[in-house]
Amino acid sequence: MLKPVVIKADNLYKTLQGQEILKGFSLSVKQGEIVAIIGQSGKGKSVFLKHLVGLMKPDSGKITINGVDITSADRKGLTNVRKKFGYVFQNGALLDSMNIFDNVALPLREVLNLKEDEVREIVLKELELVGLRDAVWKSPSEVSGGMIRRVALARALVMRPEIILFDEPTTGLDPIISRAILKHIRLLHKKYKFTGVLITHQIPQAFDVVQKVAMIYEGKAVVVETPENIMKCTHPIVCQFIHGRLDGPIKEDYF
């Protein structure tokens, strides 16, 4: 049976500060599937992710989440759609005025209005899952980058969202922690079957987690393929990118 499409971005255009970032970007993500987006830095990967939750609006084009058009949704409509999402930000985006426990507890208290003993039980269980049971009362400034990403992961998962967006969850971390986070995402995906979009530069390690890979180039998804086909290096742009070659169709003024 064909799985339904959960995320559908159709022909998105976005210009920021006079620079065209998205130029007809289209992508579909089916239920229970994680799609990795790869591409050069500053070329629209995070911008696309922000469009999916309505933090940015496209200049033209349409995004539907479970068939609901979010590009024309009002504030209330967006809030309803956002309840389906978990979002792991690039630098964690934990509230630094709160400790780790309160950060993870925040959506449970503010959105679900759960009782304090229920909140405590859920949060401790969630932090246990990411191996941070001993750091619950520390503030974000007292823990390492890897721990911050794990807290961000716990916060994104605590509401059991249908869709999780990962914005470079392993960038800047050491290879072992990166691998551990990717493994954790894979285990959670197996358990909760969420739909996801993962922005990553961890090639090919992150490909173990995803079912499809989309390469963004010049504001478009130029290739959307399975990880195995991507690694076969049949497309010159993808091939140059994944091998980090300076020569090829991607022409940039590097320095």
Partner: peptide, 21 residues
Amino acid sequence: AEIGSMKVTEQIDALEVMGID
């Protein structure tokens, strides 16, 4: 300063995405 630094470090975006106005 506090809200400004929350804005530039995406903490306000994080609130919005969690469904917190």
